Amino acid sequence: MSQERRMAVLSAIVEDYVQTSEPVGSKALLDRHQLNVSAATVRNDMAALEDEGLIIAPHTSAGRIPTDAGYRLFVDRLQAIRPMSRGERAAITDYLEGADDLDVVLDSTVRLLSTLTRQVAVVQYPSLTRSTVKHIELVPMSETRLMVVVIMGTGRVEQRVVPTGVDYLAPQGADALASARGRVNAATRDRRLAEALDSLRTLHDEDVETEDALTAGVIGVVEAALAEERATKVTLAGTANLARSSSDFPMTLEPVLDALEQHVVLLKLLSVEADQEAPGVSVRIGSENPVTGLQGTSLVTSGYGAGDEQVGAVGVLGPTRMDYPATMAQVRAVATYLSRIVDA
């Protein structure tokens, strides 16, 4: 019973400190929360929590604030992620509804999430190594040129114009193109890009009915898409929100801002979440972040994807003094809706 009571005291300290940014004393806890115990009991519980390294007294203040370990225990003991209201869910739907271009979708996503959380929002572009081919379209541009359009399951599109030796605008060429389109899609549809590339190479070597230039052009587009994987990027919004929490960074914001400028750092952090097989919300608190400049922050992330396949991650970065239940709910809701968009 005493352990549960101490956890209730810890939760109350976290909630009050997040709301007020002021150290929390025993009198404030008794005034604001229904703990149903004496002031002496609360003081004893606070002393025990301090001994366990879950709260500390900043400077000479009589109040206490949570440590990284205290926040960690608070988050781990959350029974469930707080559901968003119907109005909040409707706002997400309305804001993202109708966007079909991937860049527009991801830009809208980070702007929405930074507005909801009042923190820095970041989203990883879909990883092409996890992407599947949804459809390959072959469009004749002239008597000697053909446009190859590869549409990924994530909504990403790669295209290029390739030279051909067949006039696909002529009736006979149009029939040949329709046949080739069917064989190319049969070899690639719903396959990951690397697998689709292998199938295309087999088609190129063995299919005598399809023009070599055509299959070579399709292979070139898929190869280019895979090569671009090295340039997978992130986009972010809401950096100015950090200024509102400058008191949470007693030294300077400069290390945090420097880390945010290095997109490869954020990509590395988000890629860990995208690599997880099980969907869910992940929280890294303070010193749990491997990047030195971000060890005064917390990162709340969730993967998104098409079907059961996670292809990227979306998250929020802010000070450790964060409303974790609300932020976790908002990140999860936005990631869920983003998954619906890329899976459409």
Rank of each mutant, 00 (worst) to 15 (best):
I13K: 01
V14L: 01
E15C: 01
Q19I: 12
T20V: 13
E22N: 15
L29E: 01
H33L: 05
L35P: 00
V42H: 00
A48W: 03
L49T: 02
D51G: 11
L54E: 02
I56M: 14
P66E: 09
Q79T: 15
Q79E: 15
I81A: 01
M84K: 14
R89L: 15
A90W: 11
A90C: 10
Y95P: 05
A99Y: 14
D100F: 12
L102D: 04
D103Y: 06
D103Q: 13
D107A: 07
S108H: 12
R111T: 06
T115S: 07
Q119R: 15
S131F: 11
T132Y: 09
V133N: 04
H135I: 09
E137A: 14
V139H: 04
E143Q: 13
L146H: 13
M147E: 13
I151L: 10
M152A: 14
R156F: 11
V157S: 05
V157L: 11
E158D: 12
Q159A: 12
V162Q: 12
V166K: 09
A170D: 10
A176H: 12
A178E: 06
S179Q: 12
A180D: 07
A180I: 03
G182E: 12
R183E: 00
V184Q: 01
N185V: 06
R189F: 12
L193T: 03
E195G: 14
A196Q: 04
D207V: 11
V208F: 10
E209C: 04
E209V: 08
T215A: 03
I219Q: 09
E223Q: 06
A224H: 08
A225T: 11
A227N: 11
A227R: 13
A227Q: 11
E229L: 07
A231S: 07
T232G: 13
T235H: 11
L242W: 07
A243T: 12
S247I: 08
P250T: 11
P250R: 10
P250C: 12
P250A: 13
M251L: 15
E254F: 09
E254G: 02
E261H: 13
L267I: 03
K268E: 03
S271P: 02
D275T: 03
Q276G: 00
E277K: 08
P279L: 05
G280R: 09
R284H: 13
R284L: 13
I285A: 06
E288M: 08
E288V: 14
V291R: 08
T292Q: 15
G293P: 06
Q295N: 09
G296D: 05
V300D: 01
Y304V: 01
Y304K: 02
Q310R: 06
V311R: 03
A313K: 02
G315Y: 02
P319L: 05
R321G: 07
V331F: 00
R332P: 01
S339V: 00
V342F: 15
D343N: 15
D343W: 10
D343P: 08
